[in-house]
Each structure stands twice: as C-alpha cells, then as structure tokens.
Write a protein that binds this DNA or RNA. Structure first.
Ligand SMILES: [Mn+2]
Ligand SMILES: [Mn+2]
Ligand SMILES: [Zn+2]
Ligand SMILES: [Zn+2]
Lengths: 135, 135
DNA sequence: ATGCTATTTGCAATAATGTTGCAATTGAAT
DNA sequence: ATTCAATTGCAACATTATTGCAAATAGCAT
C-alpha cells in the first residue's frame, strides 16, 4: 500500500508533507525523530506543518509516537500488516535508536478496583544487538 | 527518615532546595511536576537550580522521573521503604495525575538474541478510580 | 478546464522543558 | 574563623510543541 492510498483510505487530503512523512517512515527499519524524517524528505516544510502532520497521522493511527526521554521523540509506522499489535519499544542507550519490537506484545497489567486502562506503553532501555557486537 | 538524613546518607550537601524537594515529594501521594513541587515549596529557586537538583536526586536514586507525554514530566520519591521495587505508573487522562503503582511490578520482557536490557518503563494510561466515580 | 470552498500551510508569537558557561555564594570540613 | 570544592543565580541558547491568522491549495462540482 502506497502513502497516497493510505491517505485516501482515511479521507485525508493528499499533501506532499503527509505523503513524504509516510513514505520515509514506511521505508525506515527504526523509529525516526522529526529531524531524521526531515533529512530523508525531499522538500522543506515549516515545523508547524510538520507537527500538525504528525498529529493528524497519529490521530488516524497511521503512525505512532514513541516518547523516550522527553527531549527525544520518535515516530514509526502503524496500522499496517507488520504493525498491527500493541508492542513494546526498545531504546538503545548507545546508538540512541528506537525499534518497534513487533514480537514483544505489551503484557496485561491488573489495576486496582475503580481504575480502567485505555493503553499501556512499554519502553525497554538497554543495548541493541548491533552495539553489543561492537564492544 | 527525614530529608536531611537522606542527603547525608548519600554524602550530598544539605541545601534548602534539595531538602525542600525531597520534603514535598515525600509528603505527596502522587508524582508531581516541577510547577507542582515549586508551589508546595517555601522559598524560590532559579529553574536551573531546580533542574540540577532534580538531576542530582535522580542520579542518587532519591527520586525518579516519569515522562508521560514529553511535555508532561513528573517526579516521585524513590529508594524508600514503600518505593523499593520497579513498578508501573498510571496516568489519568482526566485529572492528569501520575501515580506510582507500587503493587504492579514491571513484568519481564524477553528480548531477541544480542539485546540486553537495563531497565523497563511501563506507563498505563486510563481513568483513575476518583475520576471514574465522578462520571 | 475553471471556479468554489473547506482544509492545509507558513509565519510570528508564545510556551514548557532543559542545558551550558561563568562569576558569586555557600556548605561543611579543618 | 578559614578554606575550598560544590552549589547557586543569571544570561543565553536549544528542543519540542501549540495557537492565531492570512495566504495557498486539494478535491469537488460545474
Ligand atoms: Mn512501534
Ligand atoms: Mn514510581
Ligand atoms: Zn544500539
Ligand atoms: Zn483521575
């Protein structure tokens, strides 16, 4: 499924910014920050437009946001064949990358009476396979 | 254990800012933001001092930081009788509070070969018992 | 193809969170 | 009381993000 088709299927207008973001995020093997996405993008956009695009794409569950450490935010594709389930995310302290762990589903946590949960975020921090080899 | 004793036990200098932060966080039943801590504090401190104090207290595991949604950060006491274990955190979408779920330990997630984990953060988002009653 | 209109964009301003360098101040050890 | 390393306050700067408003544009109808 192409970026344009994804936008159409949600009745979202096809704009080059949205299309570009989806395209970049689709091709990426890891979650990307705003700057990393901008680097891979042809065309320059105002940051406001960028943020509004992210917000829209998030609302329609086309991408999802991973907040690592409130100065580090990354975005990844969602709602596709490979990104269906709610999964844990891995952050590598050495190479500062974030990876969607599709094969690590978020576990169920039992809340006290009266509490209801809507979603659970799991962020595992450590050293990735690539960085570990380099030691 | 009093704030001063906590500082002494880590060989940290006793400053009114550090002492005040620990005192406020100790008395709180929920995690507090920078602004909430400042409100409950006697004495005014520069933001830089505040942040440096947070950083130090975090490094010595006297408090811990909960990043909800990268524009919302809260701090809670750590390393005491009631805050020994690694626990999940609950964020209420309605009253915007964060609570340490001492009784909900973080579960173990199995990583692929080559990956090693250092810590895992679990943030459960939903509606707290208090807000649910009010509906 | 052309025009219409609601949506989207760019720009300016504003906000929250956080860091760095440096001089002045201070905690606490002697 | 003296000393000095640690801490503070101030200024400047960085990153992530939001809002209002006028200009531009996508998608639809004609
Ligand atoms: Mn993911
Ligand atoms: Mn906690
Ligand atoms: Zn790595
Ligand atoms: Zn609540």
């Amino acid at each position: 499924m192409k970026p344009v088709d994804i936008l159409n299927s949600h009745n979202l207008k096809r704009t080059s910014c949205r299309e570009g973001i989806i395209d970049v995020v689709m091709k990426a093997s890891q979650a990307l920050s705003e700057i990393e996405i901008r680097e891979r993008l042809t065309g320059n956009y105002d940051r406001t437009t960028f943020y509004r695009s992210f917000k829209t794409l998030e609302e329609y569950k086309i991408i999802h946001k991973i907040v690592v450490d409130n100065q580090l935010v990354k975005y990844a594709l969602d709602n596709t064949v490979t990104h269906k389930n709610k999964h844990a995310h891995f952050y590598c302290n050495e190479c500062n990358t974030v990876k969607c762990m599709e094969n690590i589903p978020v576990q169920k946590y039992q809340l006290p009476d009266g509490y209801s949960d809507i979603e659970t975020e799991v962020l595992i921090k450590g050293t990735c396979a690539h960085c570990k080899m380099e030691d």
